Simulated assay, not measured.
Amino acid sequence: MDAELPDVAAGRRFYGELFGWSFEEAYGSSVWALLNGDRVASLAPKSDGRMPTVWTVSFAADDAAALGRRITAAGGQMVMAPFPVGDLGTAALAADPEGAVFGLWQAGRHPGFGRRHEPGTFVWAELYTRDTATANAFYGGLFHEALFGDGSEPDFGRAAVTDVFPAEMPSHFLAHFRVTDLDDALGAVQRLGGRVQAPPLETSYGRVAVVTDNQGASFALLQR
C-alpha cells in the first residue's frame, strides 16, 4: 500500500494523527509508515504533478515481468514496466481491461507490510467496476487465491458500479483501513483537513465510510 502525495510532510501529519503511525525514511524521498514498529504503508512524493493523488493497492508477484506479460495477454496493460526500487524489490503499475490501476511488488529486501486487518492498518481492497464478468475472469486468472481464498482472512472484493454512481466514474480500487470507532475516525478526518465523500453504510464486510485526506487521496475507513 502506498500513497502518492504532493506533500509527504503534510501526509505524515494527517495519517500520523489519524492512525497513530510513526515514520522512517525509506527509498529516495519516500517514508515508511510504522505501527508499533512494523511497516504498514508508505508515503511517496508524486513524481509528476499531472498524476492523481491516490492510494495504490499492490499485489505480490514472484516475478513481476512474467506477471506483466500475463496481464497484457489477459487484456490488461502495463502502465509502468517493472523497475527496481534499490535492493528493496521490483515495482510495476498495471491496469485491468476496464482501466482500474493496481501495483505489483516483487519482494527483495522489503518483503511487504508487517501488519494488516488491525486498527490503523490495511484491511480490505474493493474493486469497483462496470463489467463484473470481465473482472471476475481477469483477476480470477491472475490472483486466484486473492479472490477465492487460501485459508487466510480475505483482502479483496469486487462490487459493481451501478447507475447510482456518476457516469464518468471510472473503474478503480478503493483501499480500506480498519478503525476501532468509525464515527470518531470521521471526526478526526474532518478535523485534520480531510472530508467525508460517502457517509457510513453497512456492507457485508463491515461498516464503511469513504473519505479523502487533506490532499485529496481517497480511501475508506472500515469498522468491523
Score class of each variant (00 low, 15 high):
A3Q: 05
A3S: 12
E4F: 12
L5H: 08
L5T: 07
D7K: 04
V8W: 11
V8D: 15
A9C: 07
R12P: 07
R12K: 15
R13K: 10
F14Q: 03
E17P: 10
E17L: 09
S22K: 05
E24F: 00
E25A: 13
G28I: 09
W32R: 11
A33K: 02
L34A: 05
L34Y: 04
L35K: 00
L35N: 01
L35P: 03
L35I: 08
N36A: 14
N36G: 14
A41T: 03
D48Q: 08
D48H: 05
R50T: 15
P52Q: 04
T53S: 13
F59K: 12
A60G: 15
D63W: 05
D63N: 07
A64K: 00
A65V: 13
G68K: 02
R69C: 00
I71G: 04
T72M: 07
T72F: 04
A74I: 09
G76N: 00
M78L: 14
V79H: 10
A81F: 14
V85G: 06
D87Y: 08
L88C: 11
L88Y: 15
L93Y: 03
A95L: 07
D96P: 06
G99M: 00
A100H: 02
V101F: 07
V101Y: 10
V101C: 10
G103W: 01
L104W: 01
Q106Y: 07
R109T: 14
R115H: 06
R116M: 13
E118C: 14
P119G: 06
P119K: 09
R130D: 03
D131H: 00
T134C: 01
A137Y: 05
Y139R: 00
Y139G: 09
L142C: 10
L142Q: 11
F148I: 07
G149I: 04
P154K: 03
D155E: 13
D155T: 11
F156W: 02
G157W: 01
A160C: 05
D163L: 14
V164W: 15
P166Y: 02
P166R: 00
E168M: 14
M169H: 01
H172V: 13
F173A: 05
A175R: 05
A175V: 13
R178Y: 10
D184N: 11
A185I: 06
A185M: 01
V189R: 00
G193R: 08
G193A: 04
V196H: 08
V196Y: 05
Q197F: 08
S204V: 11
S204P: 12
R207K: 10
T212C: 11
N214C: 06
N214W: 03
Q215F: 05
G216H: 06
G216M: 09
F219I: 03
F219K: 00
A220T: 11
Q223Y: 08
Q223D: 13
